[in-house]
Design a protein around this nucleic acid. Sequence first.
DNA 1: TTGTATGCGTTATCAT
DNA 2: ATGATAACGCATACAA
Lengths: 374, 374
Amino acid sequence: MHPVNGNVTANGILTHLSDRVNYENRGRELAWLSSGVTEKDGTATSTRAGRRVTLRDVARVAGVSHQTVSRAINGKSEIDPETQRRVLDVARELRYRPSRFGRGLVQPDVVTIGLVVPDVVNPFYPEFVAGVIQAAGGRDWQVVIASTENDPSRELALLRSLGRQVDAIVGYFSHTDDELEPYVAGVPLVIVDGGLDSTTHALVRVDTQVGVRAGLLHLIERGHRRIGMIDCFSTCDPLVRRQTFLDVARAHRLPVDERWVVLGEQSMAGGASAFEALRAAHPDMTGVLAFNDIVAIGAFQATRKLGVAVPAECALVGFDGLSIGELIDPPLTTIHLDKRRLGELAVNQVDRLLAGELPPPAVLSPHLLVRATT
Amino acid sequence: MHPVNGNVTANGILTHLSDRVNYENRGRELAWLSSGVTEKDGTATSTRAGRRVTLRDVARVAGVSHQTVSRAINGKSEIDPETQRRVLDVARELRYRPSRFGRGLVQPDVVTIGLVVPDVVNPFYPEFVAGVIQAAGGRDWQVVIASTENDPSRELALLRSLGRQVDAIVGYFSHTDDELEPYVAGVPLVIVDGGLDSTTHALVRVDTQVGVRAGLLHLIERGHRRIGMIDCFSTCDPLVRRQTFLDVARAHRLPVDERWVVLGEQSMAGGASAFEALRAAHPDMTGVLAFNDIVAIGAFQATRKLGVAVPAECALVGFDGLSIGELIDPPLTTIHLDKRRLGELAVNQVDRLLAGELPPPAVLSPHLLVRATT
DNA sequence: TTGTATGCGTTATCAT
DNA sequence: ATGATAACGCATACAA
């Protein structure tokens, strides 16, 4: 109701309650002082950038010291109730918000970690996120979450802005350790499932090799020999699944070579078409190991389309152990990874990083979870 | 390797590289200066509380100004590479970590919003979270995520600690507006799907009524009349689904009453047993409307167990439009809600709240998504 | 009860 | 290339 028109001091701050800024319907910069008057010379400006409303602003308008405002805001006892009420009114009207930085500087208590994932909706990550949140919550830490939306180019910018706001960062990254380094500016970093070693950052690793081996041996034990594999592009560990598959196959003298490994897109559709290609090339194939559960489910849908009975005609093994694997019928046999635990491990690494250590990589091994597609 | 034994200044800071603190395996307080010497009088103390290692500490040890250290840490160009290397070495050895509070104080403010969800793993929420992250990211805001783990008692404590750290809070809450108020202490709050009106907080609402109506009408159009409903306990809108169901049923003179509504636990198991109960009570039932997709999928699994053909013998309609509904065979017909959009709307409300408005509730209507269980 | 003066750790400006 | 100085917003000890 009241346009900005009151007495403005050299600081650009309004001096009287009756002249305080209008606080209704004014757009984003409302919580900031944007009086249209610069500080030094009183010249009008049209810049949108305002100043944050501070304790002192409230104090000035309320006609008390900033100290009294602090007391009022924090509900200290040594203050006249009437004064407090008046101060709080002004604070509300000025839309004052305490700065967490100003506070944190004086009472450095709350640890905040940044959490970076490629995609919140991919059913793999929510469990990981849950593990991080849980482990962080147990320490009374807070978690700033960010998603790259599967866009590696966002990663670095994200990291830079996150880095300024948090005490440490954990997450999945498609860049290497070294590429990441300049963007975190000294903020401790935990790289999950990132492949290589690092001399500066902490790592949490998944023993993919153990997993693939377990899955393949399971198929072999079930009597399968003509086994195909659906692999996918992956930023980290580019060839681990494929190589392990081929190694184990050779060791067991399976009638299988590189031509039994097809590369698919990392999606259900990718899994489906990869299965079709595999089946077309090897009609006698009786088992498939998939890059992950999403891809495996896609492959499963292809079996339905093609009229291939699972597991009778073709067995299927996924990777990750997503709970959605239970929804298909028969439920998906998979190499299960405790994604929640993965998140906990990442937070543990943060803990040690903040303690000044550079801990050795934490390694988590998946294990076979036999459901019904084998 | 080097115990703390070197020359200590009146500030308790070590003066020479050769006397720097041991930085291996010393526990959490390592990143802090705990020289055992107090600042003022040089008296030894045994307190564990040390001082944080600051830029100035690094500067002193490296023999440069704190400004130069800042340049080195942040990789600014105006610095001699040799100096930078030396400074970084010292910083690492002293376990220096930048203070996000110090930084935040100086750098342009970043708006941070708190996001509270009951459960990150429930497939409903990741999409909502993604919407919030996306909308927030578009404004260059950051998101602090927290989960109540379906425990309402955690909610208030969570809110109180979050409130200190963020500029606004959005989320799902099981407490009422009024119960929440004291815990957020003036921090703008957006309540999603919370039922009642609020005079102090912003709301995002789902038009459940429209959804239920659409689902039921769809079943009626398909010729179903003996239709059951699986309802669930819900903190918000306790009876909307049930009441709407009964109203529409009456309006269309369906041979259906309260006894066709069973209350189940909000889970797949709950959906399954609810379906069994419904089917036992009404063997001639040809259609079911479920509280949500999770419950509907549970009901679907019960149909398999009971040998009930879907949709031939019994049609099934879910609610929420989760993508996992596509995994069952036939895929689940559902009342689809754009959960991502819900997150965006919540962030929009924050925007207006920060602008000083108290916006009217934002309402999102679900729409029927016919897949194949009807 | 209220006000004044410091200092928290960092970055920016401006000097050298 | 480097350093001195000045903010930033807040809480606290201390003075009035």
